[in-house]
């Protein structure tokens, strides 16, 4: 073995080949040790990142409201409605550590889209485009979104974009003559209805 091939060794005084070799082996071990420490530290860091990521993502997977039916009054009251009837669906909303009773705007409308009972639907007022609350425009006889101009027919079906689907219908049922709905949230911008939470 040529000991002086490495320039580092040229300025070592009285280099005895045996000792130099020992030194090299030692250095090899050292760099292996360092490599081990680096890998260990990286593994430790990755391990610690797991709780951090879970911690941050927690609300993404937690539900925000408790799933309960909201009362909308006697079903018979809606028998003869001609225009959409704006109502509040009262839901218990879980907002982090706070729990509050929230009022969510819904419309009881005439229509046959699913789900419906006796030609009555309940629509969420949230625009399926980007989530503004859509008011009923009695003058034009349609829903007109104030944000980006989407328009919907009386039964919530799509008349004009940019929304890609009609207003979202909510689950309904009639119990003891009372109309009840289950308030839900839907993903914006999709051409079809997809529940994201309730």
């Amino acid at each position: 073995m040529e000991m002086n091939a490495d320039p580092r060794n040229s300025n070592t005084r009285q280099s005895v080949p045996g000792i130099e070799q020992d030194k090299r082996i030692l250095e090899g071990r050292r760099s292996f040790f360092l490599w081990l420490i680096a890998v260990g530290a990286a593994a430790m860091g990755a391990l610690l990142a797991v709780p951090l990521v879970r911690y941050v993502l927690y609300p993404v997977f937690a539900t925000t409201t408790s799933r309960s039916w909201s009362h909308l009054g006697d079903f018979s009251d809606y028998a003869s409605i001609t225009t959409p009837d704006r109502k509040d669906a009262v839901t218990k909303q879980v907002d982090g550590w706070r729990e509050s009773v929230a009022k969510k705007p819904v419309y009881v409308v005439k229509g046959k889209r699913k789900p419906s009972i006796n030609d009555k639907e309940v629509l969420t007022a949230v625009c399926p485009h980007l989530g503004c609350d859509v008011p009923w425009d009695p003058a034009q006889n349609k829903f007109h979104c104030p944000c980006h101009g989407s328009e919907f027919a009386e039964d919530g079906s799509l008349l004009r974009g940019p929304a890609k689907r009609g207003m979202d219908t909510l689950p309904i049922k009639v119990e003891n003559g009372k109309l009840k709905t289950l308030y839900e949230y839907f993903q914006a911008l999709l051409p079809y209805k997809k529940i994201t939470g309730y």
Binding site: V50, L52, W97
Partner: peptide
């Protein structure tokens, strides 16, 4: 909110008690 939000971290949030 201080106490309830701390309790939320300790009891609800994933890995909250650990952090």
């Amino acid at each position: 909110d201080a106490h309830v939000s701390t309790a939320y971290i300790a009891k609800m949030v994933a890995a909250g008690s650990f952090l």
